[in-house]
Nucleic acid binder design. Structure first.
Length: 136
DNA sequence: CTTAGGG
DNA sequence: CCCTAAG
């Protein structure tokens, strides 16, 4: 019965040692920009003081995602992506992945502190939406 | 290309 | 996150 076939080994996002980062992840800045102050083509370069440039989702993204889902629904991630954040290279695959991960992180385990301390409203919406249409 | 599921 | 499969 399939022995320990853990070809993936690491359950994280890295696939062993692929390390293919550094792709088209330069600018994204969600819909809501705190202040139009960017484009610093001077030195610094690799340091980035940085806000949320690439990698990892944040409460802002989750909020937008939940907001879009609450009105659009699960499925049309493409539309959501084009309506919410056409900027950035967040494709439907990523959106779905985030949703899945979020739902799995909230449903069931009520006692769990998530990474970026999401607001109660956010969690409630996610739970409500996740329980609304069970695509499982 | 987009959605859906698994690793 | 990345890959694969089906539409």
């Amino acid at each position: 019965m399939l022995c320990a076939s853990d070809y993936i080994a690491k359950s994280g996002w890295r696939h062993g040692s692929r390390v293919r980062s550094a792709r088209e992840r330069g600018t994204w800045s969600i819909n809501i920009e705190p202040c139009s102050r960017d484009l610093r083509s001077t030195s610094e370069g690799q340091k980035h003081g940085s806000r949320r440039n690439n990698d990892h989702w944040t409460s802002e993204e989750v909020k937008e995602l939940v907001d879009g889902v609450s009105v659009y629904g699960v499925g049309p991630w493409t539309k959501l992506k084009n309506e919410r954040f056409p900027i950035s290279i967040r494709t439907a695959v990523h959106l779905k992945d985030k949703w899945r991960n979020l739902v799995k992180a909230f449903t069931g385990n009520v006692k769990r502190r998530i990474s970026p301390r999401l607001d109660k409203d956010c969690v409630e919406k996610i739970k409500r939406l996740a329980a609304d249409y069970p695509r499982k």
